[in-house]
Simulated scan of single mutants.
Amino acid sequence: MAVCDKTIPWRIWAFTFLLTGAVGQTVNYPRPVCGVETSTVTLPCTFTPLRSFIQSEREVLLEIVRVRWCKNHLICQGNTPSVYDSNSETNDPRYQYLGDKKGNCTLQIRDLRPEDSATFRFRMEADHTEGHFTGQSGVTVTVVDETEMRIISSSGESVMREGQTVTLHCTANCTFHQLEVTWFRDDHALPASGPAFQLGPLTAGDSGNYTCGLKNNLKKRSLTYTLHVGEKGEDVTLARTVGVVLGVLVVLCALILVFFMVRRTRAQRAVGGRKCPDNICSNNPQPAEEGRDHQQETSEVEEDISYASVQFKHKNQARPVEEAADVVIYSSVASRG
């Protein structure tokens, strides 16, 4: 009975140790990585191997003897093609293993190509099959064309003032790592490298057209980013606001002027289209002034009658004089109202 008491705890401990060791085998990958074609990306990676296992009620220590990286393969074992194999002497030099056999499995991919858009997985192999393990989740790499590169300003503005500081970021349509670039201003190379380029304190000489390109492929560059640096003390925002306000006022003034011109033209056309004297066509004729001399009124009436007669005879010379007199009398009566 005493022997059983000693054996059972040992077996329980051995089972627990084995279970813990198996569960403890892990591979930690980075988030999905995006890189620009012909650039270099690094895939940070760590792993936890199985240190030992229990065989015939005794602990057997394990040692990692081989590490591999495969592309688009779930297990990465046997004769599966590898992009890197620690046991191979013919590895593609574009794939550099920066890790070890202890816990670092970092892989660097140089001169990215479209075929590198894939899922990469790491596998560890020990001196016993119990220690073999593949991290099946893997890390996804996306390769984009360098023509998708662009420059983004930390300030969000392309107009700055002297004395300010700004950082230009050379980026693409996704997040990438370790982009090796060269910066240019007005097609002249600048003494700067890396995806971020800090400028400041700014001077007028920093104004220009900026581009960025990969160090190993300078033929293709990003879209142009134009930076303008104004003189110190110049309130660029206020200047832009004043310019906008003035522009709006000019447009309003032009619209008002056009409106009045159109209105005046219409009024002139309306007056020119009238076919009778104002004292006849008017709906509201002005009354004669009180106290006006009767003799003066008679002369004015006679002048109106004569005018009307002339106008009438000019237009209708063939009609009898009696009819003209009747029309004249009617016109005179209408004018005196």
Rank of each mutant, 00 (worst) to 15 (best):
T7G: 03
T7H: 10
I8C: 12
W10L: 14
W10D: 12
W10F: 10
T16K: 13
F17T: 12
G21Y: 00
A22V: 08
A22F: 07
V23Y: 10
R31Q: 11
P32C: 08
P32M: 05
V36D: 00
E37C: 05
E37H: 01
S39V: 00
V41L: 06
L43P: 03
L43H: 04
P44F: 06
C45N: 15
T48Y: 12
F53W: 14
R58W: 10
L62I: 09
V65I: 15
R66Q: 15
R68E: 11
R68I: 10
W69C: 05
W69S: 07
C70L: 03
H73F: 13
C76H: 02
C76P: 04
G78L: 05
N79Q: 12
S82V: 08
D85G: 06
E89P: 05
E89T: 14
E89F: 11
T90A: 13
P93V: 08
Y95D: 01
L98A: 07
L98P: 02
D100N: 14
K102W: 06
G103I: 08
S117I: 00
F122H: 07
E125F: 04
F133P: 02
G138Q: 02
G138M: 00
V143K: 01
V144Q: 00
E148I: 03
I151T: 02
S155C: 05
G156R: 04
S158H: 13
S158G: 12
R161T: 15
L168D: 08
H169N: 08
A172I: 00
F176K: 00
F176N: 05
Q178W: 04
F184N: 03
L190A: 02
A192G: 05
S193M: 08
S193P: 03
G194K: 02
G194F: 01
P195M: 01
L202N: 04
A204R: 11
A204T: 12
G205W: 05
S207P: 05
G208H: 01
N209W: 03
K215V: 07
K220S: 03
H228M: 13
V229S: 08
E231S: 14
R240W: 11
V242I: 15
G243P: 00
V244D: 11
V245A: 13
L246F: 11
L249I: 15
V250D: 00
C253W: 12
V258A: 15
M261G: 10
R263D: 11
T265N: 12
Q268L: 14
Q268S: 11
Q268V: 12
R269W: 05
A270M: 06
A270N: 05
K275W: 02
D278A: 14
D278F: 13
I280M: 09
N284G: 06
P287T: 06
P287C: 04
E289Q: 14
E290T: 14
R292F: 11
R292M: 15
H294S: 13
Q295T: 14
Q296G: 09
T298D: 09
E300A: 14
S306R: 14
A308Q: 07
A308D: 02
K313F: 10
E323R: 03
G337I: 09
